[in-house]
Amino acid sequence: MSDKHEFILVLFLLLAALVAIVFVYVYLSSGAKSSQKEDGKGLNNTQRFWFFLLLTAALFIFASFTIPKSPYYLFEKESPSRVVFVAAQQYYWALSSEAIGPGNPGAGEAIELKRGELVEFRVTSLDVNHGFGIYDESNNLIAQTQAMPGYVNRLRWKFEKPGTYKVLCLEFCGLAHAVMRASFTVR
């Protein structure tokens, strides 16, 4: 599990536990000694409104903090030193340093990238939708983009760790979806 995945899982489990505790607590508070508040309202409208506003503000701050880190803006100011062309087809990945087309089916080419260099994956599909998911040596998903027929999606990435990286399909594309894969190395 990568640090990021671990953070996400722990965050989720903590929040889920918090919700569960609140619900259990409230459940246990009911019934026993009966009603102290006849109207059944804990917070008045103004308090609810402020709570809601606070939550919305928190989410907006969170959004404005995370959105600029979206993959669409990754390394946008830099010029890539490598392009890897990716063409997906039922059920294989063609990866090539040259454009893939009738003259270059792109199969069987060993892709070697340098550590730290900016790579641009130009991902498309020649038939149905596929998902170009890059997995590191410890099988963590580190980045992805969809392969959509008729369009080229550009994913820019810098690989910091050397090793063999795998490409798996992350959009259901048919019966051999699970075995559609490729790999490349980073030195």
Partner: peptide, 14 residues
Amino acid sequence: LTPVYNLDEETNIY
């Protein structure tokens, strides 16, 4: 059903 996409424009990029 097997559309042919012209990928010639992808050559020599960068």
